[in-house]
Write a protein that binds this DNA or RNA. Structure first.
Lengths: 235, 235
DNA sequence: GTTTTCAGTTTTACATTCAACTTTTGGAGT
DNA sequence: ACTCCAAAAGTTGAATGTAAAACTGAAAAC
């Protein structure tokens, strides 16, 4: 009876759950840019499902803040404003700081060493100015610290916020100067983690995110100026 | 054309949205105790709606963590374990601390004065050992500080967590000693707020929540011992 | 030339239906 | 009397249907 426990987990997640993941990916990856309408019919055909599970998925994503539902007018990928970022970043900062503290308590030496190795590889890409892999490793590091908190509620919550702002990332090209700063901050992060100095790590992570926010924010400002009011909801 | 801007906002929230609110209330207020199955049919009849919008609402509540969906076996009010509380409380602590810091920056003198008056009334109820109104004012104070943060994302996120643990409150009768401690902590909270000392306020709030957690946790432990494994999901 | 109006079409919100899975119930065998 | 199996009843997951709201665009009015 327990024989099939070996088989791949037959967790057959329900259709709507799968759709939540798929559509979320579309949005945070920027395939559905902020503000554009999401006609259900189109997505239904794209995924080959009926409207019911898709609509359920959209409701969930709306509660996460990724899509905006307007009564009788359907769904659209949520717009992201500077005000949103101003709100979200401090919250992410608090959460990541907490993650850092907990990670200092809970991570094994082996795990910390593995973060260090991610870090070293990341710095190597920084030196060679390879942005893409740099970003990837960067994200991996933050994910590893998060996982090290051993706190699933924290992780889920952080990911939700991160998803909402990640879309802004596509606008944000780092200046060379900012990049150097970020790399330096990461050096501090690793040091604090290796020293298991939770307070210190929390502090750096918060600062790191704050700086990142300022970069993204400035970029967004410049865009907003040049585009001259991309007008939201005209009424 | 703008004439109807004066009329009450015709926001006619959709059916499913309304249901989310209603069912959420049922759960956090303890009308649907943790672990019990939620047959959709019953709720449908209760609210006089068809299954479609109700199921949408359940999906949303599941993503908030209030209900647990088991494939082909429907929904149930999520169980709440000590481990869950251990996870959630630090996160709430971090968020409330941030709220405190922001509130110190953003609240008007008038608002702070109004919190003070809530506080005074609460202390009066404490002196007279009136638990119910004490609790109510207590919650009002925390809500006011939260609102003072002027950060909607923070508020939404905090409320979501608070909803998940609020159900545990029904087990937690405070000891006289703990009550005195809580009242004292609130005295500190008000002082820090009036001094607009953000760091101090953050610190106290975090401590306050930590103490609260220990009380609730202990209570839960005792219950768990007496009930001897209320067994969750047998397989 | 611009704005308004109104029929036709599309899209959405919700209800209903259908199929698949679970649980229950009844009975046969040990 | 207990266990095991099978058929029925009930519930859930997903598809389809329906009524109403919103968009479109072309003709009429200003």
């Amino acid at each position: 009876m327990a024989s099939n426990a070996l088989k791949q987990p037959i967790v057959r997640q329900s259709l709507h759950e799968e759709l939540v993941g798929l559509v979320r990916e579309l949005i945070v990856d920027g395939d559905l840019p902020p503000g554009v309408k999401i006609p259900e019919k189109e997505l239904c055909e794209r995924f080959g499902v009926s409207r019911t599970p898709l609509r359920e998925a959209l409701k969930v994503l709306a509660s996460e803040g990724l899509v905006t539902l307007t009564p009788n007018r359907g769904a659209s990928a949520s717009l992201i404003t500077i005000e949103d970022l101003e709100e979200v970043f401090p919250v992410m900062g608090a959460l990541e700081a907490l993650a850092g503290e907990l990670a200092c308590q809970h991570m094994t030496a082996r795990e910390i060493a593995s973060v260090r190795s991610l870090h070293n590889r990341m710095i190597e890409h920084y030196r060679q100015e390879q942005l893409k892999p740099y970003f990837q490793l960067n994200q991996n590091i933050h994910e590893a610290i998060l996982a090290g908190s051993r706190n699933n509620s924290l992780i889920v919550m952080y990911r939700s916020l991160a998803g909402r702002v990640r879309r802004a990332r596509y606008f944000a090209n780092m200046s060379r100067k900012r990049w150097a700063q970020a790399a330096a901050e990461h050096e501090e992060i690793i040091s604090a983690l290796e020293a298991r100095d939770g307070a210190q790590l929390a502090d750096i992570l918060k600062r790191h995110l704050q700086n990142k926010f300022e970069t993204v924010s400035q970029q967004l400002m410049e865009m907003a100026e040049s585009v001259q009011k991309p007008n939201r909801a005209s009424r």
